[in-house]
Amino acid sequence: MIIMKKILKLISAAIVVVMMSCNSESSTQNSSTDNVTPKSGQEAVKDDDSQKDVVKVAVGSKDHTTLVAALKQADLITSLSNAGPFTVFAPTNDAFNKLPTGTLDGLMKDDKKTDLQNVLQYHVTLSAMKAESFTDGQILGMVNGDNVTVSVKDGKVTLNGTAHIIASIPASNGMIHVIDAVLLPPAKK
């Protein structure tokens, strides 16, 4: 977890740098000497007025620091800052902690980026679904190409029989459903 915290610090620093760099418009110079091509996407747009998107909601949550770090490592921040509409199942830090020892650290290695992307994209689907719109037995096609099965019992939503929706937060570009377990994609056949 110490490693995670270091990574997080780096990420926050990176976000600050990104935020600052987007302030430097060429308002006084004609720009032949300007730096070109910012290295970030829509997440760097300076906008303190709009409703927060799914990334900004996650960044603002102290329970989702691991998820945010993982999204960053998987290069998914830009995509999830897009127009959406997304439904994001967002495992808490505790949920990540429940994974077998070493799993997450393994996925966070640069040479495992594809695997990490596969896991995280298994937590995202297109269309903004409210908690009450889930139905028992519903099959959700996730961004990574695999399916998640929904069960609804007494109004409580469970995914793949293991992860429970414990909170739902609307964001500008979709819905975040906080879950208490990490969803693991089915093993490749």
């Binding site: 418009e25 060429s26 308002s27 004609n30 720009s31 032949s32 300007d34 730096n35 070109v36 091509t37």
Partner: peptide, 13 residues
């Protein structure tokens, strides 16, 4: 050309 070029992602004056 250099005097009117505003790089992508930058604002006009």
């Amino acid at each position: 050309a250099g005097k009117v070029y505003v790089a992508p992602g930058h604002y006009d004056e």
